[in-house]
Structure formats: C-alpha cells, structure tokens
C-alpha cells in the first residue's frame, strides 16, 4: 500500500517544511483478512454512530455539547486492537468512539446522549461523562487534560497490583499545553508506570491550529524532557497505528513504561456541534476526506485483496446503519430518569 503523509498546516494554510517525516513503517505489517474486516466494521460503526448523533443533535434530541470523532477512527481502532482484558482506557469528552472500541453497546451510549434512564450513566453524565467499569473504560472527562493524571493513576494501580495491564490515556493537541500533562509525564517516567500516552493530534484545539497554539508542534517530542521517547504515527492509517501501539503497549507490559505516541489525525466536523469551523478552508477538509480517509484506506485494501466485493461491503454498511438506527430508536423510546434519581449516586452509601 502506498504510504501517504499528512501535510502539516501553517498559519497561511500552506504545508510547512517538515523537520521530521511521519515515521515510515516498512515492511507493511502482516494483516489477516479477519483483522481487515474487523477494523473496517469497527470504524464504520463509529462513523455511522457519529453521523446519527449529529442528526439527533440537529433534531434537538441530544443537548449541550456533543463532540464527534468523524475522521479520527483509525486511532482508537488501531490502539484498541493491541489491548487485552483488564487494561484501562480513558479519554477526553470526544469519547463516543472510544466506548464503541471498548465494545460498549451503542444503545447505552446513544441513550446517554439523549439523557435517558437507560443510558450508561443513567442519563446523569451526558456525552462528555460516560464510563464503564465492566469494559475498562474510565471516561469521558470534560476538563481538558484532567484525564492525563487520572490515566497515570490507573497505571499506578496496575503497577501496585503487580499485573501486566496497561492504561491507555488519550488526549488531544489542545490538552498538550496543560501543565498537569507534564506533571503526569514526570511521575509516570519517575515510577515507570505502564501508561501509553496517546496524543490525538487532529490539528485544531477547538478553533486554534496547532501552529497558533504550540511553540513545539512536533508533539511526540513533548516527553523528551522527561526521558519519554515519543513516536509520530500516521493516525489515518489503522495499521500504522496498530503497529506503533503494539510496541508501546509491549514496552509498558514489560515494566518499561511509559510510552508516548503522537497520532497525526484529522476531524472532519467542527470541535463540537455548535462550531462553524471557519478557522480552516473547505478545501483542506475535503482533501483530507478524499485522500486520507481511514475507512476508505481499509476499504481499498479489502477490495484490492478481493476479500469482499463492493456490493458485499454495501450490505455490511446497511447492517451497521440498521444497528445504529435500532440504537437511536432505543434511545428515543427510553424514559427519562425518574425524578428520584436526582439525589442518588451523590455519595456511595457505606
């Protein structure tokens, strides 16, 4: 497969000269047909789910903030492929796809987005605040960067209990300028915590481009002062993501954590539903969609390898759409929380 690099934008919108190219991963990793199909279906479910969430937001069924992951699907899909039972995952408020990657039922997520009693947080969390202990998903955090020390703490617990599980802590290019990220890097390296820090660099912290917000835009280097070696990865390519994650996760499981991965990715939609995204050109977005789309890249491989035909893939898409529609029906038809839920879960009864 031909390797494509993602152009980094400057203030003028022209691609910047690169100091360091996105890491080449040759030879192309060996991928089974089953894996190809699994990633394809997984990413397509995320895409269709987010499209549905966008529609439901437009209909007033989802309130408040709603941050869509469309365009970034390869990152969480590739990383999740390297995890096992008992690992911990957490991220920011752009969390729907991470939950799907953790195999959480889309019905419970959409019901939470619509604020219903059947939602995963009983309707009390909303889009930004969702959790599932059962699936090792620890949020869903609404404060930019706050999940990073918490992720280090989950890793601390793995080390304390002497298991070989890891904590995967996702955060964006906006969070990398928060002080607590570096406080976490320092402690994680000082104590060799099994945490994989994953920077999802989608190029924009809300409306501010990376070039306008960061003195060092090569975010994989942000751990250097703490002796954490970082790696820059093509986050639009699920196989490149998986390969880098395998190394990072293995390092952490072996007691040699932490690890740092910068995923160069892109979100097609605005920061949240209320964002007109006037800070970037339509051409930039359409170029990313047409040339680097993570789902299209996998689809192309499936077709090239003659695993399935275009028509067969359409059937899969239809099935996934039906599954998402079913989840939307479930969410819309669920009752709102009982008023008695107002005062539950404030404190845990002893």
């Amino acid at each position: 497969m031909a390797k494509k690099s993602i152009p980094r934008k400057t203030k003028s919108g022209k691609p910047a000269a690169r100091r360091k190219a996105v890491k080449k991963h040759t030879p192309t990793p060996i991928v089974t047909n089953e894996e190809l199909m699994e990633y394809y279906k997984g990413m397509l479910l995320m895409r269709r789910f987010e499209e549905k969430a966008g529609q439901m937001y437009g209909m007033g069924l989802i309130g408040g903030f709603c941050h869509l992951y469309i365009g970034q699907e390869a990152v969480v899909t590739g990383i999740q492929a390297t995890l096992k039972e008992g690992d911990s995952v957490l991220t920011s408020y752009r969390d729907h796809a991470h939950m799907l990657a953790c195999k959480i039922d889309p019905k419970l997520i959409l019901a939470e987005l619509t604020g219903r009693a059947t939602g995963i947080s009983k309707g009390k969390g909303g889009s930004m605040h969702m959790f599932s202990v059962e699936h090792g998903f620890y949020g869903g955090h609404g404060i930019v960067g706050a999940q990073v020390p918490i992720g280090a703490g989950l890793a601390f617990a793995h080390k304390y209990r002497k298991n070989d599980n890891v904590s995967v802590t996702y955060f964006g290019d906006g969070a990398v300028n928060q002080g607590q990220v570096y406080e976490s890097f320092n402690m994680a390296k000082l104590w060799n915590l099994p945490v994989v820090f994953v920077i999802e660099n989608n190029q924009y912290a809300m409306g501010t481009s990376i070039a306008r917000s960061s003195s060092e835009v090569e975010l994989f280097r942000r751990g250097e002062s703490f002796k954490i070696k970082g790696e820059c990865v093509d986050g639009m390519d699920v196989f490149a993501v998986r390969e880098a994650a395998e190394r990072a996760v293995a390092k952490c499981r072996a007691g040699d954590g932490p690890a740092l991965l910068e995923m160069k990715t892109y979100r097609y939609r605005g920061h949240s539903m209320s964002d007109p995204a006037k800070y970037r050109s339509k051409e930039e977005v359409s170029k990313m969609r047409s040339e680097f789309d993570p789902i299209d890249q996998v689809k192309k491989r499936i077709l090239e390898a003659n695993i399935l035909s275009e028509d067969e893939l359409k059937v899969i898409d239809k099935d996934i759409k039906a599954r998402v529609s079913e989840a939307a029906d479930f969410a819309q038809n669920s009752a709102e929380p009982d008023p008695s839920e107002l005062y539950t879960d404030v404190l845990v009864a002893e």
């Binding site: 703490g153 601390f156 617990a157 304390y160």
Partner: peptide, 21 residues
C-alpha cells in the same frame, strides 16, 4: 514521596482510587 506537583499527584491519586485502591 511525590515530586512537588499537587495537581498531578492529586489527579494520579484520583485515578488510583477509581481503580479501587
């Protein structure tokens, strides 16, 4: 012993507590 990093170690403690330590 932690570094002098209150925001960081408070958050790290919260994460450890969420994992039931």
């Amino acid at each position: 012993d932690t570094p002098i990093t209150e925001h960081g170690f408070a958050g790290l403690g919260v994460g450890a507590a969420m994992a039931n330590l």
